[in-house]
Structures are given as structure tokens and as C-alpha cells.
Design a protein around this nucleic acid. Sequence first.
DNA 1: CGAATTTGACCGGCGC
DNA 2: GCGCCGGTCAAATTCG
Length: 323
Amino acid sequence: MSDEARDLFHHDPFRQDGRTAFQFSQPHQNHHYPSIYNQNVNHEVGENSARDLNGLDHSFMSFTDCLHGSMDYSSLARAFDFSCSSPHDVVVSDNISSQKKGGGQGDSVGTGDVSGTVNSSLSSSSSEAAAEEDSGKSKKGHQTKGSEEGSEKSKKVNKPKKKGEKRQREPRFAFMTKSEVDHLEDGYRWRKYGQKAVKNSPYPRSYYRCTSPKCTVKKRVERSFQDPSIVITTYEGQHIHPIPSTLRGNSAAGLLTPSMFTALSSGPIFPQELLIQMPQTNRSHGDTSSLYSQNLTAIQQLQFPDYGLLQDIVPSYIPKQQP
DNA sequence: CGAATTTGACCGGCGC
DNA sequence: GCGCCGGTCAAATTCG
């Protein structure tokens, strides 16, 4: 997993510009992560971009939407796919050069060049989407944990569940943010349930779960080992509830509010991971008090309504915003 | 005192 | 089959 990020850094075509990079991937049957970034992406993508552009011309969605059920990954995919058209700012790649779990870690994975062209990717399986739906459960069979009746937690951890079926992963969506704090505020409430050391990285990865009952959304947060100032956050699943009011007052409003964009429906695919690298312009303040705001700033840039900052990461080809 | 975090152990998938 | 590794659990601990 960390590979995802790692790959990113390896090629990191985006970083060169100090812009943004989006990445989609499909979880698929067990750990299939795309190897994302390929240096060619920028070019190749360009081709489809035009096409997608049209498709999106009226609708966009926020990341929050992503997290929400309100959006569908295909839309997102498209949204970003089109953005790829800009050779400088955003890149979407859902190519799957699947990197497997174990293997991936090594690193390399993305290093090479992944082939895939974006377009091909976009057509992948839609079944994935379905997967996300029933997601939560698949996990490991527990998930119900605490409340579990009876079942005395015999040993520890889970009870085997149906063997035959492999656990399906929910669609994932990741983004990179330049920030000094690991856990970025996104409006939702999270509970940390684990932390693991990341192979080949001095920084640990933290696992969080949405505290809302029934919501199975999870997210992983880790810091780039190559650039400690970058935090990689990966969301898995979609929220089935609104953003808690706690942050609504201030940040949420400025954060990712749903409905800022309209999701496109239909679309063959659904990317699962989206990686975004925030522009470096965010860091300038030094005191801790500003950290929070920095984060917000980063996220806010994702808002389309106000193109101000967004322009930096979202190319001008973004059509008008939908009423 | 309840909620959140920490942390070591366990489990399943995958590569060799 | 074995070992590695990511992901998760859950008891213990800390925090508000």
C-alpha cells in the first residue's frame, strides 16, 4: 500500500510542477493497486482529455462527495480524467499494473514505467462499484466487533468468514497533501484503530475508521518517506451520513461540501484511488496555529466553486460550474 | 467516566 | 508450506 504513494513519488511527474496529481485505482480482488503514475501519463492522457472534457462540462463533485454516497467513482474518474488533459496539473491514471501487496512494497513498483494509458484504464470493470456497496462487511468478517453478542472473542481477532470469497475492497481514493500534521481535518470524525510501521519508510501508517455508526469508511494516513512534508491520505468506502456538525461551522463549510458538484452518473469505470498532491504554495506559515489553516487551505483548493486557489491545481479547462 | 488512542498480537493473502 | 506483510482487533492506557 504504501507503494501507492511510493510510486507516486517515484515518477512524480506532477511534483515537478508542484501541482496536483490524481490517481485512481481499483481495489479489485485483493490488493490490486495500480501502479499509477507513469511518466507518460501526461501525454497520453491528453488525448482523451478532450473527450472527457465534454462529458464533464457541467458536473463536478467534491472529494467529500466522494466520501459520500452522493458521488460515484466513475464520475470522479471522469472528472479527473478530463483534467488530465492538462499536461501540467492533473493526472489521472487508473491503469492497472497491479501491484500486489507483498510485492509492491518493495518499491519499485511504480518505478518503472507503467504502461498503461489512461484510457484503457477507464474502462475497467464496473463490478467494482458494486463491491463497494457491500463493502463493509467483507472486511474480515468482524466489523461488528464490539457489540457482538455471544461470540466470546475467542482468541483475538476474527472469525473466519466465508472462505471462498475473497474480501473485496471498497473503492479507494487517496490524496496527498503538503502538511505538517498527519491527520488532516476533513469534516468527519475518525477513530484511530491501528498503526503500523511502513516498510521502507520511517513513518508509520495510521488507520482510522469513521466513528459514525454503520459507516464503514476507513482511511489510512501516512507520511511520504521521500518528502516528509507530504501526507498521504487514502479513503476507502463512502460515507453514508452527512458530515458531522462539529466542523460544519467553519471548516466544513470551507471544506469539501457535498453537492458542490454534481456527480455524473454513468460511466464505465470507477477508479478507486485518487491521489492529489497539493501545490506547495501552502506552506508558508510557520506557527502551529497556522497548521490547521494550512490544511484547510489545501483542501479548500479542491473546491470548484471558488476557483481562486483551485486554479492552481485544476486547470482552466474546467468548465463553468453548475448552478 | 466515557471516548479516543496506543500497541502488541493475530489473521489472511500472496510470493517464493 | 513457509515467511512476509498489510490490515485489524482489542486490552490497556490516556485523554477530556
